[in-house]
Amino acid sequence: MFIVTIILGCLLGVAVGMNLPTISYSYSGYLAIAIIAALDSVFGGINSILQKHFDIKIFVSGFFGNAILAMLLTYLGERLNVDIYLAAVIVFVGRMFVNLSMIRRYYIEKWNNKNKITK
């Protein structure tokens, strides 16, 4: 059920995003890191829906909070001449993999259970 809304949102997003103008190059780094944070939040959200402890407040605040924090860290890193955004990328992508594996495990277990019952 939630997959339908996700796909619908993504399709609408592509339709609108392709018609928007490009942003200035100095800000593209910030947008990139915000996108990674957002992706992480979405995978986390899907995972928590499947584990049945989904909370909309945690989801929304995590989505915006993580994106903003990541951008701030990137800015700080640029000021300090340290690539802090790398740390953010590693954390977010690492979590993405964890969440993905949880999602995968959930569906495989479901499938296995189904097979057992039919046998």
């Binding site: 939630f2 809304t5 996700i6 619908l8 949102g9 993504c10 609408l12 997003g13 592509v14 609108v16 995003g17 392709m18 928007l20 490009t22 942003i23 947008l31 915000a34 996108i35 957002a38 992706l39 939040s41 979405v42 959200g45 989801f59 929304v60 989505f63």
Partner: peptide
């Protein structure tokens, strides 16, 4: 969730 996905894909496309 749909809105969040929408925001995210807009960002990705841009």
């Amino acid at each position: 969730i749909g809105i969040i996905c929408f925001v995210m894909t807009v960002g990705i496309c841009v």
